[in-house]
Amino acid sequence: MTDLPAATIAAADFYDRHYAGAEPIFLEPGMKLMLGSGERPRHCRFCGKDEPAVTFKDEAHALPAAFGNTGLFSNHECDSCNHFFGEGIENHLGNWTKPMRTLSRIRGRSGVPTIKKPVPEKGWRVEYSGTGFQLKEYEGEPFFEVDEEAKQVRFELHRDTYIPVAALKGLVKIGLTLIPDVETPHFRETYEWIRDPDHARNFVAQFPVFRTFIPGPMRNDLIVLMLMRRRAGIDTVPYAFFTFAYGNEVLQVFLPSISQDKCIDGKALSLPAFPTPGTPDPARHGPPRVTVENLTGRGAVKGEKVPAVFGFDSMIEAKPEDAKGEA
């Protein structure tokens, strides 16, 4: 570990002293894993109902298919909850993460999502095909800048409309799917909170989400999930969190427990982000960059801009006629 930055070593030591981790899940193409027992009657941990009051006919994704998940499913979620989440908080989560999923080339049900100007008429668009990214703009409406010397393209993407706290609930729902059955009683109020369609309801005072961006080319077909729980005898940190790595992004999401987090009520928390391995070529692409996301907003966010920088080895400028017929 001597080649790692001092801050990374310190963060690794912090989490080793305060938390114990479950075996991580490395989800690769072709794998299929099912969380939970298929024994009958089945029980839904989200609404608390059992068969036959609810059905379990659909395959419930343990995390949304939009993140490239084709192999991790859950026996813990009934059809009603599956549809409810898919039409609600998971849609908000999808809108919040869409720019990063596009830039990381994450293939959802319909492939890598295309991002375009949020107007009905023609406008700029960013899309990915097998040959690479295509950035399209129209005369008189430039939206990206090219630095040929640095071999970089700078531009701003737009997020689709989302409610921050609803996106946060979508993240927490992933963690509540991963936890073992023995832990679910500690999160009874949290299950109720993510199912509550009233996003104005207060729940916990502090709810940071650490987002680590790893620059450079990264695999777009690998998902890594890891669940961490506070060690016995420790009472200065939140009870549990999970990390979710896909493409160039790692999200660290705390799972609030009303009963287990009483020890930190009213206390200011100062936590490092969970350490990540970083890019294979830090000298070329730079170190990971950490931001703390605030997803506690309760109102709809429209037209939010997301700055982005592309590095490139080569670039082809398309002729105007090549763009004809584009929607």
Rank of each mutant, 00 (worst) to 15 (best):
Pro282Gln: 06
Pro197Trp: 10
Pro287Met: 09
Phe241Gly: 01
Asp79His: 01
Val126His: 01
Ala283Asn: 10
Asp313Glu: 15
Leu222Tyr: 01
Val153Met: 00
Val290Lys: 08
Asp322Tyr: 09
Glu189Tyr: 11
Arg211Gln: 10
Arg211Asp: 10
Leu27Glu: 05
Gly278His: 09
Arg40Cys: 08
Gly132Asp: 02
Lys57Tyr: 02
Val172Ile: 14
Met1Phe: 15
His158Gln: 14
Ala66Leu: 10
Val204Ala: 13
Thr102Lys: 06
Ser257Met: 05
Met228His: 15
Phe210Pro: 10
Ala20Arg: 13
Asp221Arg: 07
Asn95Leu: 03
Ile223Glu: 04
Arg40Asn: 14
Ala166Gln: 11
Pro180Cys: 10
Thr212Ser: 14
Glu137Ala: 08
Pro282Glu: 06
Lys98Glu: 15
Asp198Ile: 12
Glu148Asn: 02
His76Gln: 15
Phe85Pro: 00
Met1Ala: 14
Arg289Cys: 00
Met100Leu: 10
Gly278Asn: 05
Phe312Glu: 06
Arg109Asp: 08
Gly71Gln: 07
Thr97Pro: 00
Gly216Trp: 04
Pro29Asn: 09
Gly68Leu: 00
Thr8Ser: 13
Cys81Ala: 03
Val126Gly: 00
Thr236Tyr: 03
Gly278Leu: 12
Phe213Ala: 08
Cys78Asn: 01
Ile179Leu: 10
Gly299Phe: 13
Lys136Val: 15
Glu156Leu: 13
Pro320Asn: 00
Met315Thr: 02
Asp221Leu: 06
Glu293Lys: 11
Pro197Phe: 11
Trp124Leu: 03
Gly286Asp: 04
Gly216Leu: 07
Leu103Trp: 01
Asp265Arg: 11
Glu90Cys: 02
Gly303Thr: 05
Arg231Lys: 15
Ser80Cys: 07
Lys32Val: 04
Phe133Lys: 01
Cys263Lys: 12
Gly86Val: 00
Ala200Leu: 13
Arg231Cys: 04
Phe254Trp: 12
Arg45Phe: 14
Leu72Pro: 05
Arg154Leu: 03
Pro197Arg: 09
Met218Phe: 00
Thr70Leu: 13
His61Lys: 07
Asp265Ala: 14
Arg45Met: 13
Ala200His: 14
Gly88Ile: 03
Phe46Thr: 04
Leu255Val: 10
Gly325Ala: 01
Val54Glu: 03
Asn91Trp: 01
Gly111Leu: 06
Asn82Gly: 07
Ala11Leu: 05
Met1Ser: 13
Asp160Gln: 14
Tyr191Asn: 07
Asp221His: 06
Glu326Trp: 04
Arg229Ile: 06
Lys169Tyr: 06
Gln260Met: 09
Leu295Arg: 13
Phe56Cys: 03
Lys57Pro: 07
Ile316Val: 15
His186Asn: 10
Phe312His: 05
Tyr246Gln: 10
Pro275Asp: 07
Gly71Tyr: 11
Gly30Pro: 07
Thr114Asn: 11
Phe67Leu: 12
Val301Pro: 05
Val306Cys: 03
Ile194Asn: 02
Glu183Met: 14
Gly48His: 09
Glu321Ile: 04
Gly71Cys: 09
Asp147Gly: 06
Ser110Asn: 15
Leu222Ile: 09
Gly48Tyr: 02
Gln260Glu: 09
Leu135His: 07
Val126Glu: 00
Glu293Val: 15
His92Lys: 07
Ala273Ile: 08
